[in-house]
């Protein structure tokens, strides 16, 4: 699928971008430090959403809905935190998180592809199981003695005002996520694997007749995608927060699905949507910190979700949304 936008949509996008840049510039010249803080917070919040959205999109491109991202985040964050705290190594923790994500991806595949469980139910099982397991095994006494991942300055790039701090002075997993956007984009739209993946999501029957093993590829993709959510879990526990707490994914696995849909199931589109959501979250935190406006924090807290509803409704009206044709349907070899 070429992901061609209608001309008026493209114009709308560019107009929106231009307006945003002007607003950012205005704010930056008025209050530099606070604008930088909000935008840095935007990137911080966007990273997790982008990873979740990429996990979701690889599944959906192959025809498998994954509403278990929330659970994948949570259990991976738990594994990452526990292993990091046991070994004293953030790197080992990150690997454990990715490993747990792969395992949960595999479990989702085993249910949804192997056992032909309804895909939505399979995801729900993951979510409930993750919440139960992490609460059951949670050990309050654990902590990260060495602290969380710290920022790495990318040489002179980090010295650029605003942009440098926001994009080029970040912790390692954020950079990894940005790199993964390119990897996933190229893999999905420029590789044989990507073509086959999109084929089994659009018309598994036809893909089957040309010799693609639909079930095997779905198994593989859903498992691999779980690794991305696992990285998200590692990011959450080891880079964003620096600890584990009960239900810490806080609905962001679901939000990632919305981000994926806004982003039209493309990595860069999803990242743009993730930045938008991240922005509302960062704005909310900033509001709560300095009380410049007399808006109750609960109403600021609603903002990203209300905006999601409006955008989902509007994009439905505009009709730009088209799902992979075989999405949600389990494939039975005929």
């Amino acid at each position: 699928m070429g992901e061609v936008m209608k001309p008026q949509q493209r114009q709308l996008l560019y107009a929106g971008l231009a307006v945003m840049l002007v607003i950012i510039w205005l704010f930056y010249s008025a209050n530099g430090p606070q604008t930088t803080a909000v935008l840095a917070g935007t990137v911080r919040a966007a990273t997790l959403l982008a990873l979740g959205a990429m996990c979701g999109m690889i599944g959906e491109r192959s025809g498998v809905v994954n509403i278990g991202i929330e659970g994948q985040f949570l259990l991976s964050a738990f594994a990452a935190f526990t292993i990091a705290s046991m070994t004293g190594s953030l790197f080992m923790g990150t690997l454990a998180g990715i490993g747990m994500g792969l395992m949960m991806g595999w479990m989702l595949a085993a249910m949804a592809v192997g056992l032909k469980v309804d895909q939505i139910i399979a995801g729900t099982v993951l979510n409930i199981a993750a919440l139960g397991l992490t609460s059951f095994f949670y050990d309050r006494s654990r902590s990260l003695g060495m602290g969380k991942y710290t920022n790495i300055d990318l040489g002179p790039l980090a010295d650029i005002p605003l942009v440098g701090t926001v994009f080029f002075s970040r912790p390692p997993l954020t950079y990894l996520t940005m790199a993964l956007l390119f990897v996933v984009h190229i893999a999905l739209f420029r590789s044989v694997w990507g073509m086959r993946t999109r084929a089994i999501g659009e018309h598994p029957g036809a893909a089957d007749t040309v010799g693609i093993d639909v079930l095997r590829l779905r198994y593989l993709n859903v498992t691999l995608a779980g690794g991305l959510a696992g990285l998200g879990g590692s990011y959450l526990a080891l880079e964003a927060v620096g600890t584990f707490s009960r239900a810490m994914s806080g609905g962001r696995g679901f939000l990632a699905l919305a981000v994926m849909i806004f982003g039209r199931r493309t990595p860069f589109g999803a990242y743009a949507a993730a930045l938008f959501f991240g922005f509302t979250t960062a704005l909310q935190n900033q509001f709560q910190l300095n009380n410049t406006f007399d808006i109750p924090p609960q109403f600021v807290g609603m903002l990203p979700f209300v905006v999601t509803i409006i955008v989902v409704a509007l994009s439905g009206l505009v009709g730009s949304m088209r799902d992979p044709a075989a999405l949600g349907q389990n494939y039975e070899k005929g």
Binding site: I261, Q298, G301, M302, V306, I309, A313, L317
Partner: peptide, 26 residues
């Protein structure tokens, strides 16, 4: 919303959960 705009109820109801949480808190 589902009937008029096609907005998927799974996403909308999840979002409404968060909105309700904030609203009832307030």
């Amino acid at each position: 919303l589902k009937a008029t705009t096609g907005a998927h109820e799974v996403i909308v109801t999840i979002m409404l959960n968060f909105v309700a949480g904030n609203l009832t808190d307030w």
